[in-house]
């Protein structure tokens, strides 16, 4: 296959950046999308040009590092996968593909297609945990947890923190990410003691990082590679309101 790429190039966070066009031949359908980019980079290096920087690590859809807007869709055209799981058989000879970094004020561009998502880490640091020290735990089976609760918790915990939800939201909202963490812990007995404080503190940090509010576009759910449902946003809102209304410390 021959593919034409339009790729966002930006030398560093202060550079203005712009789209550049590249043509790549010899793309096979077995290649993953990132292997296609490897090929483009190999060619660029051989031509003495600078390769395209993009983020990736596990290349199997679990680490949440890869992050590309492909033809305007986070993680590309196929549902429920990450960019690294996308294969070139989803495209055809002669296609033009536009590739951009995650778009959000709270994710500044580091270089080309690489962004800084440390705001996500800071939100978790604000309260996305259970306060327990190593060694202080009771026997794991002391506290039975109804299977449906544990399953719902796991549905939320499946979040890989990639940021596709933010990149797709017209408001640049991080509500799906934050609600996944809050939902994961709120469905477990271990998460109860800090439940409302957690919701309040994490939401406050989310706002401080400059993420927008949710106005129910549900783009986040549509692109989430782990299919995390927006019902967690509603649940988070309930916890957040309760936390602010009762304003216990």
């Amino acid at each position: 296959m021959r593919i034409t790429l339009h790729v966002w190039r930006q030398k560093n966070s202060t550079d203005t950046g712009g789209m550049k066009e590249y043509t790549v031949d010899g793309v096979s359908e077995d290649m993953s999308f990132l292997e296609m980019l490897d090929l483009v980079n190999e060619n660029l290096i051989n031509e003495g040009k600078e390769p395209i920087a993009f983020d990736h690590d596990c290349r199997e859809g679990i680490c949440g590092t890869c992050s590309l807007m492909i033809n305007g869709i986070a993680h590309g055209p196929d549902a429920a996968i990450t960019t690294c799981q996308l294969h070139m058989r989803s495209f055809k000879d002669g296609d033009a593909i536009h590739i951009e970094p995650w778009r959000s004020l709270a994710f500044p561009v580091v270089r080309d297609l690489v962004v800084d998502r440390s705001s996500f880490d800071r939100i978790v640091q604000a309260g996305g945990y259970v306060s327990i020290n190593a060694g202080a735990a009771q026997d794991a089976n002391c506290l039975p947890i109804p299977k449906p609760d544990s399953d719902t918790s796991m549905d939320a915990a499946a979040c890989i923190g990639c940021g596709a939800c933010v990149a797709s939201c017209p408001n640049g909202s991080a509500m799906l990410f934050v609600s996944a963490k809050i939902g994961h812990l709120a469905h477990l007995p271990q998460g109860q003691p800090e439940r409302y404080k957690r919701a309040r503190d994490m939401v406050a940090q989310m706002d401080a990082e400059g993420f927008g509010a949710c106005s129910n576009h549900y783009e986040c759910e549509a692109v989430c590679p782990k299919e995390i449902p927006v019902k967690f946003i509603a649940k988070m809102n309930r916890d957040f309101f309760k936390a602010t209304m009762c304003s216990e410390s």
Binding site: A137, I145, K147, L188
Partner: peptide, 22 residues
């Protein structure tokens, strides 16, 4: 065994049976 206890206390959602146990 301590690891399993520790992880459950942190909120690791291990698979459970219908009785609620691991």
């Amino acid at each position: 065994n301590d690891i399993i206890d520790q992880c459950v206390a942190q909120g690791v959602p291990f698979a459970r049976e219908y009785g609620g146990l691991l």
